[in-house]
Amino acid sequence: MSCQEVCEFLDAYVDKELDVFTSSQFDRHLTECAACRAKYDQYQQMHDSVRVHMEYFPASEEFVQKLRAQLHQSGRRPAENIRRSWFPQWRVWAMAASVVAVLLLTAVLLRMVRRPSSSDVLAEEVVSSHIRSLLANHLSDVVSSDQHTVKPWFSGKLDFAPLVKDLSSKGFPLAGGRLDYLDDRPVAALVYKRRQHTINLFLWPSSASNSRPRTLTIRGYNVVHWTHSHMAYWAVSDVNAGDLGEFAHDLED
């Protein structure tokens, strides 16, 4: 790669938008050319400084409330008029009550049926998902070691924002992320590496209270499960249980 090309690709490199090949060529040029290296350092420094200091203007709480109120108002009025004209009010309530009762009953029954081993079944499911991701060579939909690339990729694809941590300093570099389906819902799957091993970290919102990491072994794979801040975490890998425990510990920090 020439110095001219380095200039051209500087922004894409800073933004981690270069493909792997061009990026590695860029890296190589920087190690060989002191002038470009200096230019890049300064550019990166400037870029970081601007990003840190650029103000963010969130919407005020009152403004959001106002939007919300207008939304509800615009939706409710016409619907009420229609309903009243052909359906007596009490019947609506009676119907609503019976629907709620049926739903409650169903929920209770489902819980009773599922209770015996729902956690074990889920652990099995997690391991299968891990194996499938390796077999199908479908590890990542977004390939990046940058948490600021991986995290935004999930927005709009999930109804929650997964916590994406960079653990490369602890020896668990981030490799990417993808969508998966577990426990009857779409979940975030983050891919980390430990030397040659792959760690899949599955996470999704959970109503369970906080729990400490618990390790199990299923079909030769180590699985660690914990709950934190209303998120369920499942880490699964073929690395040894000690390493995986360390991984869970670093994530929790």
């Binding site: 051209e8 230019k39 400084s49 200091h53």
Partner: peptide, 18 residues
């Protein structure tokens, strides 16, 4: 886009404030 950044010394500011 390249020309404007031909001279890195043109920008010496390191602590941009908001």
């Amino acid at each position: 886009a390249v020309t404007a950044w031909s001279d890195p010394e043109a920008v010496l500011i390191k602590n941009a404030n908001s």
